[in-house]
């Protein structure tokens, strides 16, 4: 991390106080690892693509709220959020269509593997990953749309009244 970005992170004008920023920096990695674990082990333990995707999105929302929207939108812009949203949905649909190669729609055409293995259960982990990407991107996009878009609109209206 070069010095300019470091200075910008510690800038008090953006985001919340440095207490929140320090705690958020500790928690961020743990939240992302937990979300990835929930997605990848969705076929073995409780959880799955939807819950894990929302946990990952909460990590991004924590980043955006504590460090300010400049840093948050630099990590995941809303253009990229909508691209990832489409990618996840299409990936899920493509996995479903690939089932036609073995017979029917959404057929579990890959090998089942050993039970309790990480790489098992055929297409279920792939579907989980696709849904995780989709939910991560779309929930973060909703947060951006509800907070930042509305904020900019209200700033504009206030300026106009003055």
């Amino acid at each position: 991390m070069n010095r300019d970005i470091d200075k910008e992170i510690h800038n008090e004008a953006h985001g919340m106080t440095s207490i929140v920023k320090t705690v958020a920096r500790f928690l961020m990695g743990i939240i992302f690892i937990f979300g990835a674990y929930i997605i990848l082990y969705g076929h073995l333990t409780p959880g799955g693509g939807f819950a894990g995707g929302i946990i990952l999105a909460c990590g991004y929302i924590l980043l955006t709220m504590s460090f300010g929207k400049e840093i948050g939108l630099r990590k995941l812009t809303d253009n990229w959020a909508s691209i990832l949203d489409n990618t996840g949905a299409l990936l899920f649909l493509v996995i479903g269509l690939l089932g036609f190669t073995a017979g029917s729609f959404f057929l579990n055409f890959l090998g089942k593997g050993n039970i309790f293995d990480l790489f098992s259960a055929g297409t279920i982990p792939l579907n989980n990953i696709a849904i995780g990407i989709k939910v991560l991107a779309s929930v973060f996009a909703v947060f951006i749309a509800l907070s930042i878009f509305g904020r900019v609109v209200s700033d504009y209206v206030e300026d106009e009244e003055v």
């Binding site: 333990t45 799955g48 579990n108 309790f116 259960a121 279920i124």
Partner: peptide, 20 residues
């Protein structure tokens, strides 16, 4: 299905059409 989480196996294998 090979998945030990029955909820996931219902969501993404037996009833994947509903999930889409």
């Amino acid at each position: 299905t090979g998945a030990t989480n029955i909820v996931t196996s219902v969501l993404l294998d037996y009833r994947a059409y509903d999930t889409i």
